[in-house]
Amino acid sequence: MLGLLRKIRRTGRVAEPAPPSPVVDRSAVAAELGGSVQIRHVDAGSCNGCEVEIGSAFGPVYDAERYGARLVASPRHADALVVTGPVTRNMAEPLRRTYEAVPGPKLVVAVGDCARNCGVFAGAYGVAGAVRDVVPVDVEIAGCPPRPEAIVEGLRKLTGR
């Protein structure tokens, strides 16, 4: 315990200083949320690259939580869905249902190229389409996978902080 305490003291704060706010104009929905965005992550068929980056975005270094974003366990608790990967046939209906399950006002963030336009999987037989073909998308974050900074930036557009 003491060792852990010492380590905490030695390490100090690892979160990088916050970059300037990227928010130009928040959507009406985002404004309604008032700086608190709970996120439900949906993997619609991703290769897990984006998941790793989302994980880092919520890790101590990028610390997306400081801007008021938080991952939650149920779409009922969520304000926004973070969708990764091309939407596979099997995940199209679940994605739609997850979207249904979120109480309004709600947002969808498509993370990664696959989510935006199916990326390298475009036209594959198991792919139903991009996220926007299934549910309305509010924010898209490009990259394969997108860097954590990009993800944080995308989320900050929702929280407005």
Partner: peptide, 14 residues
């Protein structure tokens, strides 16, 4: 944990 944290008021915002 070395993070910055969302601030004391965050639960109220939620």
């Amino acid at each position: 944990e070395g993070r910055a944290g969302p601030g004391v008021g965050q639960p109220w915002r939620d």
